[in-house]
């Protein structure tokens, strides 16, 4: 049970990352590698501020703003200086490595007994519901605070998913999506596409930095290397979500990005549970993701063939 709760919690925290990647990858059609820097930026800003005595909520909001600036910077380099999008992201990501070291003052900031948004929520939940210690779920005992953490992360992800949906449905959001689809058309309608790209990448990286800030507070430390490989994770989540969702309208795509992140983490958890040679972990994870992607397609084909043979 602890593993399942932990998996869902991490999966949902990283769902914020996949929502961010969804914006850059699906709306603007390029994998924005700023991600690997901005997730660490969010973690390091929030950790450094919490250790410095700031309120954890303020720290988390500043982390979000920091992510926005990083993304906007990538957008500015891309649009104003006509640098290839992928390279703009690489530049900002590279620069952020040093920035993150400066923000934290060292490579790793532990948040051991500091007040974080996670501990605040846990304490709030325990005092409102007048429970503490462990509870029994499906025959195994789990610390009740873990349940509150999961519930609150779920709440945050649902609210942000909904806000993102509403935003992308608004006039501004629609213009942004149109920028990704057909720049010439939307420019002809008088929309400044450069502003759209800068704003969009800003929002994308704000979500990613938020993911980093929550992750750092959940796991109890920020580390300058924690961003490595995160873009790939986000892309995998978005694509898994897409593959498993049969309706390509916006709301379902957003739900898919969240669900994709959950599924990815669940598959890693299964690989862990099988307890095989640790060197094979990544190989097994890759195989599982592959199966999850192709299984629905294979089943469909099989069903169709079955239907045909009946006629």
């Amino acid at each position: 049970m602890s593993l399942l709760i932990g998996t869902f919690t991490i999966g949902l925290i990283l769902a914020l990352l996949s929502l961010g990647v969804f914006i850059s990858f699906r709306i603007f059609n390029f994998p924005d590698i700023t991600t690997e820097g901005s997730i660490t930026l969010g973690a390091s800003i929030s950790a450094a501020m919490i250790v410095g005595g700031f309120d954890p909520w303020v720290a988390t909001l500043v982390a979000l703003a920091g992510g926005f600036m990083a993304g906007a910077l990538t957008g500015i380099i891309h649009t104003r200086f006509a640098v290839n999008g992928l390279l703009s992201g690489i530049l900002v990501m590279t620069a952020l490595y040093s920035v993150n070291l400066h923000v934290m003052g060292k490579s790793n900031v532990p948040l051991m007994s500091d007040k974080t948004i996670i501990t605040t929520i846990e304490n709030l939940g325990m005092s409102v519901f007048r429970v503490s210690g462990d509870i029994t779920l499906f025959g195994s005992t789990v610390p009740v605070k873990d349940v509150f953490t999961l519930a609150s992360v779920l709440f945050i992800v649902l609210v942000l998913g909904l806000l993102l949906y509403l935003f992308l449905k608004s006039n501004l959001g629609t213009a942004m999506r149109a920028t990704g689809n057909n720049q010439q058309m939307i420019r002809a309608l008088g929309v400044n596409t450069n502003v759209m790209i800068i704003l969009g990448l800003g929002i994308s990286n704000a979500l990613i930095a938020l993911s980093g800030a929550v992750l750092a507070q959940f796991q109890g430390f920020a580390d300058v290397q924690m961003g490595i490989g995160m873009l790939v994770l986000g892309l995998a989540s978005v694509i898994i979500g897409e593959a498993l969702i049969s309706d390509k309208s916006l709301g379902y795509m957003i739900a898919g990005a969240i669900g994709g992140s959950l599924i990815f983490r669940l598959l890693v958890a299964v690989a862990l549970r099988l307890g095989m040679n640790p060197n094979d972990l990544k190989l097994i994870t890759a195989v599982f993701v592959f199966i999850a992607l192709v299984l629905p397609m294979v089943l469909k084909k099989y069903k169709r063939r079955g239907a045909q043979s009946k006629c």
Partner: peptide, 22 residues
């Protein structure tokens, strides 16, 4: 002895500790 190695991935590292709690 169960050996688990996160291979540098911090999210997986967290899951491994959850599995240890289990």
């Amino acid at each position: 002895l169960d050996v688990a190695n996160a291979q540098g991935d911090i999210a997986t590292l967290n899951l491994m500790l959850d599995e240890a709690v289990n």
